[in-house]
Amino acid sequence: MTKPEHRDIGFTLNGEEIRFSGTGTERLLDVLRYRLGLPGTKEGCGEGECGACTVHLDGVPVNSCLILVGQVRNRRVDTVESVAPEALVELHTSGATQCGACTPGVVMTARFVIDHPGLLERASVRQLMAGNLCRCTGYDGIIEGIAEALRQEETSP
């Protein structure tokens, strides 16, 4: 076995340049949670099925349990910690969160949908949210919150 090679890994995390030393073979999820002090991103399954670990990579939702941190060097990662409370009003009101364990992932995909309404020309909100399993809400609270946020975006100047 070759000796693990440590190197400098740098990427943009929630708008800030991050640098740390590692082999690059840790999961992005673990690095965020256990090395960089951002436990908002949750692990629900570790198999890319539940979406609780969703973050944005260059603006697109991805499962951070299926990415090695070396793969995000020089790229932009945004986590739930980057979302402003004002962007969550509709989801809060509609009952989009109950136990909260799936919620950070839901929020990251929901914000992506809300910020890219053009996606709805080819897919429904329910299809776009299918990568985020929720066991509490039955999804209605989530879907309604997104719909309301989309209405707000549409009517706001």
């Binding site: 436990p39 908002g40 991103t41 949750k42 986590t79 739930v80 910690e81 979302v83 409370p85 969550l88 989801l91 809060h92 009101t93 009952g95 989009a96 969160t97 109950q98 136990c99 909260g100 919620t103 950070p104 929020v107």
Partner: peptide, 11 residues
């Protein structure tokens, strides 16, 4: 609104 809701939504 759910009391701890915003904390959950913000992770």
């Amino acid at each position: 609104k759910r009391r701890e809701g915003l904390a959950k939504l913000m992770g």
